[in-house]
Design a protein around this nucleic acid. Structure first.
Lengths: 151, 151
DNA sequence: CGCGATTAGGTCGTGCGCAACTAAAGTCCG
DNA sequence: CGGACTTTAGTTGCGCACGACCTAATCGCG
């Protein structure tokens, strides 16, 4: 027979009982799966996430971008500089509030969207989850994130 | 009414449709939640994972550790050096196979286990998932990891 | 108006995480 | 036996992630 089912309230120190490890391993595995696809676009995974946001909404501040991706400016600033150096976006201080920096896609950055269309399809295929499993996972992960960040 | 439910096979480029982002954000949020707890033990999150393995099985090779945590030696080698510098473990070449390095806990490393007992309890509490949700999340994440790494 | 508090973005230091590469040790086979 | 191949750790370079800290701009309140 199997051992007793692990209780999340029980506080096991076994690696395989830890949801956190399943999460950490899955996240890295998925990102690894993205890597060859994103390599072709010359992007890293966090850079791809930034572009996802910019493809939805051009003209955004670093602060807003950080809020969308849950990343600090100390992470975003160098990342945005690299994307700017690659010619995908521009950064300029806003005239109405000089503290704020407006991020805007260049034509090259906007054009990359078309080449990126195939990426979510390929990933969705590799993930191999049913529509229900996908939705259920997303829901659980959001609940978890919400709980863990607010309490 | 709500828009049509997103289909994982449909290939949306909207950030909030991406399971990968929910995963990435959740993983970082959970690790952030661990941080203050692990700070008290003088550990980072990956170091804590390494100790979880060693508390289960003392005397393990770098290779086996990498297999358990899905990490490369290029990640583990410096990490293990830091843990050794902190006096938590020892590394020594195996006499029967000089390529291999045996990792063994010191007394201090083994003793840390008792102080770590409270960690999973606090995290489980912060995650705030029911036993069923916890199990379901773990199962989905393992399926996802499996699919994404093997195909 | 003036000045302390807040906000936005940035740099710096540290520790992952991984690809590419290296060196050394072990294995396999003619 | 000996050389090709494989395996194991390790180093290096680069790009995150984040905390601590900094500067400049703006806000708020007396």
């Amino acid at each position: 027979m199997n051992p007793a089912p692990p209780d999340p309230a029980e506080g096991s120190l076994l690696l395989d009982d830890q949801l956190c490890f399943a999460l950490y391993a899955a996240s890295r595995a998925v990102i690894a799966r993205y890597r060859p696809l994103l390599d072709e676009l010359g992007l890293t995974y966090p850079q791809y996430l930034v572009l996802l946001v910019l493809w939805e909404q051009d003209e955004i501040s670093v602060r807003e971008l950080g809020a969308a991706l849950q990343l600090e400016s100390s992470t975003l600033s160098p990342l945005l500089k690299r994307l700017e150096a690659h010619g995908l976006l521009r950064r300029e201080r806003r005239s109405d509030d000089e503290r704020s920096v407006a991020i805007r896609l260049t034509d090259a950055g906007a054009a990359l969207r078309e080449r990126a269309r195939a990426v979510p399809l390929a990933i969705g295929d590799a993930m191999g989850l049913t529509r229900e499993q996908d939705a259920s996972a997303k829901q659980l992960l959001r609940l978890l994130t919400e709980n863990v960040t607010t309490r």
